[in-house]
Protein backbone atom coordinates (compact mmCIF):
# COMPACT_ATOMS: atom_id res chain seq x y z
CA UNK A 1 0.00 0.00 0.00
CA UNK A 2 1.29 3.43 -0.93
CA UNK A 3 1.76 5.73 2.01
CA UNK A 4 2.85 8.67 -0.12
CA UNK A 5 2.31 9.64 -3.76
CA UNK A 6 4.26 12.46 -5.34
CA UNK A 7 3.42 13.79 -8.80
CA UNK A 8 5.38 16.30 -10.88
CA UNK A 9 6.88 18.09 -7.94
CA UNK A 10 8.53 21.36 -8.88
CA UNK A 11 10.50 23.93 -6.94
CA UNK A 12 11.78 27.34 -7.97
CA UNK A 13 14.04 29.41 -5.71
CA UNK A 14 13.80 33.17 -5.96
CA UNK A 15 16.44 35.76 -5.19
CA UNK A 16 16.22 39.40 -6.32
CA UNK A 17 18.72 38.75 -9.10
CA UNK A 18 17.88 35.27 -10.30
CA UNK A 19 15.35 32.48 -10.18
CA UNK A 20 16.65 28.93 -10.01
CA UNK A 21 14.74 25.86 -11.02
CA UNK A 22 15.83 23.42 -8.31
CA UNK A 23 13.51 20.47 -8.82
CA UNK A 24 11.25 19.45 -11.71
CA UNK A 25 9.17 16.45 -12.74
CA UNK A 26 9.79 14.61 -9.53
CA UNK A 27 7.27 11.78 -9.19
CA UNK A 28 7.38 8.64 -7.13
CA UNK A 29 5.31 6.47 -4.81
CA UNK A 30 6.41 5.26 -1.42
CA UNK A 31 5.15 1.99 0.01
CA UNK A 32 4.48 1.50 3.69
CA UNK A 33 7.46 0.05 5.54
CA UNK A 34 9.80 0.88 2.70
CA UNK A 35 13.25 2.46 3.06
CA UNK A 36 14.12 4.73 0.15
CA UNK A 37 17.39 6.58 -0.31
CA UNK A 38 17.81 9.62 -2.52
CA UNK A 39 21.30 10.16 -3.94
CA UNK A 40 22.64 12.74 -6.34
CA UNK A 41 25.44 15.22 -6.95
CA UNK A 42 25.90 17.81 -4.19
CA UNK A 43 23.68 20.87 -4.42
CA UNK A 44 21.16 19.11 -6.65
CA UNK A 45 18.19 19.80 -4.39
CA UNK A 46 17.94 16.54 -2.46
CA UNK A 47 17.19 18.32 0.81
CA UNK A 48 14.69 20.59 -0.95
CA UNK A 49 12.59 17.57 -1.88
CA UNK A 50 12.65 16.35 1.70
CA UNK A 51 11.70 19.80 3.00
CA UNK A 52 8.74 19.93 0.66
CA UNK A 53 7.51 16.49 1.73
CA UNK A 54 7.83 17.57 5.36
CA UNK A 55 6.11 20.88 4.49
CA UNK A 56 9.03 22.90 5.83
CA UNK A 57 9.32 24.46 2.39
CA UNK A 58 6.62 25.46 -0.12
CA UNK A 59 6.39 23.63 -3.40
CA UNK A 60 6.07 25.62 -6.61
CA UNK A 61 3.91 23.06 -8.34
CA UNK A 62 2.86 19.40 -8.27
CA UNK A 63 1.14 17.12 -5.80
CA UNK A 64 2.20 15.53 -2.56
CA UNK A 65 -0.49 13.16 -1.37
CA UNK A 66 -0.47 11.16 1.84
CA UNK A 67 -2.83 8.21 1.70
CA UNK A 68 -3.47 8.17 5.40
CA UNK A 69 -3.37 10.73 8.12
CA UNK A 70 0.29 10.09 8.83
CA UNK A 71 2.73 11.77 11.15
CA UNK A 72 6.13 12.83 9.89
CA UNK A 73 9.38 12.84 11.83
CA UNK A 74 12.49 14.70 10.76
CA UNK A 75 16.08 13.75 11.37
CA UNK A 76 18.50 16.51 10.51
CA UNK A 77 22.12 16.62 9.46
CA UNK A 78 23.12 18.00 12.83
CA UNK A 79 21.73 16.69 16.07
CA UNK A 80 20.54 20.23 17.04
CA UNK A 81 20.24 19.14 20.67
CA UNK A 82 19.56 21.88 23.20
CA UNK A 83 22.52 22.27 25.55
CA UNK A 84 20.37 23.54 28.39
CA UNK A 85 18.19 20.42 28.42
CA UNK A 86 19.10 16.93 29.63
CA UNK A 87 19.02 13.98 27.21
CA UNK A 88 15.57 13.01 28.50
CA UNK A 89 14.18 16.55 28.17
CA UNK A 90 15.66 16.85 24.69
CA UNK A 91 13.90 13.64 23.70
CA UNK A 92 10.65 14.96 25.19
CA UNK A 93 10.81 18.20 23.19
CA UNK A 94 8.34 17.06 20.54
CA UNK A 95 5.86 15.93 23.19
CA UNK A 96 6.38 19.14 25.18
CA UNK A 97 5.43 21.12 22.08
CA UNK A 98 2.31 19.01 21.62
CA UNK A 99 1.64 19.41 25.37
CA UNK A 100 1.69 15.65 25.98
CA UNK A 101 2.81 14.80 29.49
CA UNK A 102 3.32 11.03 29.12
CA UNK A 103 7.01 10.16 29.40
CA UNK A 104 6.73 6.38 29.39
CA UNK A 105 7.09 5.78 25.66
CA UNK A 106 10.26 7.89 25.51
CA UNK A 107 11.70 6.26 28.63
CA UNK A 108 11.04 2.85 27.05
CA UNK A 109 12.75 3.86 23.82
CA UNK A 110 15.76 5.21 25.72
CA UNK A 111 16.02 2.03 27.72
CA UNK A 112 15.46 -0.29 24.78
CA UNK A 113 18.10 1.42 22.68
CA UNK A 114 20.84 1.69 25.27
CA UNK A 115 20.60 5.31 26.38
CA UNK A 116 19.11 4.76 29.82
CA UNK A 117 22.35 5.61 31.63
CA UNK A 118 22.48 9.00 29.98
CA UNK A 119 18.99 10.37 30.53
CA UNK A 120 20.18 12.95 33.05
CA UNK A 121 23.35 13.92 31.16
CA UNK A 122 23.67 17.09 29.16
CA UNK A 123 24.47 16.93 25.43
CA UNK A 124 27.87 18.62 25.88
CA UNK A 125 29.12 15.52 27.68
CA UNK A 126 28.14 13.15 24.83
CA UNK A 127 30.11 12.09 21.75
CA UNK A 128 28.89 12.94 18.25
CA UNK A 129 27.51 9.45 17.68
CA UNK A 130 25.69 9.47 21.00
CA UNK A 131 24.12 12.82 20.21
CA UNK A 132 22.82 11.54 16.90
CA UNK A 133 21.30 8.54 18.69
CA UNK A 134 19.55 10.89 21.10
CA UNK A 135 18.36 12.94 18.12
CA UNK A 136 16.81 9.79 16.61
CA UNK A 137 14.96 8.99 19.84
CA UNK A 138 13.75 12.61 19.93
CA UNK A 139 12.36 12.10 16.42
CA UNK A 140 10.74 8.77 17.30
CA UNK A 141 9.18 10.19 20.49
CA UNK A 142 6.28 11.70 18.56
CA UNK A 143 5.54 8.27 17.00
CA UNK A 144 5.97 9.31 13.37
CA UNK A 145 4.88 6.92 10.60
CA UNK A 146 7.28 8.37 8.08
CA UNK A 147 10.87 9.35 8.86
CA UNK A 148 12.58 11.97 6.72
CA UNK A 149 16.33 11.87 7.16
CA UNK A 150 18.48 14.61 5.70
CA UNK A 151 22.06 13.29 5.53
CA UNK A 152 21.69 12.14 9.12
CA UNK A 153 25.23 10.77 9.44
CA UNK A 154 27.26 13.25 7.45
CA UNK A 155 28.53 15.16 10.49
CA UNK A 156 30.02 11.99 12.00
CA UNK A 157 33.42 10.38 11.48
CA UNK A 158 33.57 7.26 9.34
CA UNK A 159 33.58 4.61 12.08
CA UNK A 160 30.82 6.23 14.10
CA UNK A 161 28.91 6.60 10.90
CA UNK A 162 28.96 2.88 10.20
CA UNK A 163 27.88 1.89 13.69
CA UNK A 164 25.20 4.57 13.94
CA UNK A 165 23.72 3.63 10.58
CA UNK A 166 23.47 0.06 11.87
CA UNK A 167 21.81 1.32 15.02
CA UNK A 168 19.35 3.59 13.18
CA UNK A 169 18.53 0.88 10.65
CA UNK A 170 17.78 -1.62 13.39
CA UNK A 171 15.46 0.81 15.18
CA UNK A 172 13.63 1.77 12.00
CA UNK A 173 12.98 -1.88 11.18
CA UNK A 174 12.03 -2.84 14.74
CA UNK A 175 9.63 0.06 15.07
CA UNK A 176 8.20 -0.62 11.57
CA UNK A 177 8.81 2.84 10.20
CA UNK A 178 8.78 4.01 6.61
CA UNK A 179 11.80 6.14 5.77
CA UNK A 180 13.24 8.43 3.13
CA UNK A 181 16.92 9.19 3.53
CA UNK A 182 18.86 11.77 1.58
CA UNK A 183 22.57 11.01 1.36
CA UNK A 184 25.59 11.69 -0.81
CA UNK A 185 27.17 8.40 0.25
CA UNK A 186 26.44 5.70 -2.33
CA UNK A 187 27.57 2.84 -0.06
CA UNK A 188 25.33 4.06 2.73
CA UNK A 189 22.37 4.22 0.35
CA UNK A 190 22.87 0.66 -0.96
CA UNK A 191 23.51 -0.82 2.47
CA UNK A 192 20.35 0.62 3.97
CA UNK A 193 17.71 1.20 1.31
CA UNK A 194 15.23 -1.00 -0.54
CA UNK A 195 15.22 1.45 -3.42
CA UNK A 196 17.68 4.14 -4.44
CA UNK A 197 16.49 7.19 -6.35
CA UNK A 198 19.24 8.77 -8.42
CA UNK A 199 18.80 12.48 -9.10
CA UNK A 200 20.40 14.45 -11.90
CA UNK A 201 22.25 17.70 -11.24
CA UNK A 202 20.22 20.89 -11.05
CA UNK A 203 17.42 21.17 -12.01
CA UNK A 204 17.04 17.75 -10.48
CA UNK A 205 14.83 15.15 -12.01
CA UNK A 206 14.78 11.42 -11.38
CA UNK A 207 17.45 9.82 -13.52
CA UNK A 208 16.80 6.31 -12.47
CA UNK A 209 15.31 4.32 -9.62
CA UNK A 210 17.31 1.23 -8.66
CA UNK A 211 15.75 -1.64 -6.69
CA UNK A 212 18.31 -3.08 -4.32
CA UNK A 213 18.14 -6.87 -4.10
CA UNK A 214 20.83 -8.26 -1.87
CA UNK A 215 21.12 -11.94 -0.95
CA UNK A 216 20.95 -12.40 2.81
CA UNK A 217 19.95 -8.84 3.54
CA UNK A 218 20.77 -8.08 7.15
CA UNK A 219 22.28 -5.06 8.82
CA UNK A 220 23.90 -2.25 6.81
CA UNK A 221 27.41 -3.38 7.78
CA UNK A 222 26.71 -6.97 6.68
CA UNK A 223 25.00 -5.75 3.54
CA UNK A 224 28.24 -4.10 2.48
CA UNK A 225 29.82 -7.56 2.28
CA UNK A 226 27.20 -9.09 -0.04
CA UNK A 227 28.26 -10.08 -3.54
CA UNK A 228 25.80 -7.71 -5.25
CA UNK A 229 27.09 -4.71 -3.38
CA UNK A 230 29.97 -3.78 -5.78
CA UNK A 231 27.63 -4.19 -8.74
CA UNK A 232 25.12 -1.68 -7.36
CA UNK A 233 27.92 0.65 -6.35
CA UNK A 234 29.30 0.63 -9.89
CA UNK A 235 25.83 1.11 -11.37
CA UNK A 236 24.89 4.08 -9.20
CA UNK A 237 28.33 5.66 -9.44
CA UNK A 238 28.04 5.68 -13.23
CA UNK A 239 24.55 7.17 -13.16
CA UNK A 240 25.40 10.13 -10.96
CA UNK A 241 26.53 13.23 -12.82
CA UNK A 242 30.11 13.97 -11.86
CA UNK A 243 31.68 17.35 -12.07
Amino acid sequence: MNILEIKNLKKIYHTPKIETLAVKNFSFNLKEGEFVAIVGPSGCGKSTILNMIGSLDNKSDGDIKFNKDIKIGYMLQQDALFNWKTVLDNCLLGLEIKKIKDKNYVLNLLEKYGLKGFINSYPTSLSGGMKQRVALIRTLATKPDLLLMDEPFSALDYQTRLSISDYVYRIIKEEHKTAIMVTHDIAEAISMADRVIILSSRPSTIKRIVDINLTDKKTPIDNRKTKEFPYYYELIWKEIDHV
Binding site: G54, L56, I72, G73, Y74, L76, Q77, Q78, A80, F82, L93, G94, I97, K98, T142
Partner: peptide
Protein backbone atom coordinates in the same frame (compact mmCIF):
# COMPACT_ATOMS: atom_id res chain seq x y z
CA UNK B 1 21.14 28.46 14.89
CA UNK B 2 18.86 28.01 11.84
CA UNK B 3 19.00 24.23 12.16
CA UNK B 4 17.47 24.46 15.66
CA UNK B 5 14.64 26.62 14.31
CA UNK B 6 14.15 24.07 11.52
CA UNK B 7 14.00 21.34 14.16
CA UNK B 8 11.32 23.24 16.10
CA UNK B 9 9.32 23.74 12.91
CA UNK B 10 9.64 20.05 12.04
CA UNK B 11 8.19 19.28 15.48
CA UNK B 12 5.32 21.61 14.55
CA UNK B 13 6.13 24.26 17.15
Amino acid sequence: DDIKIKLMKSLKA
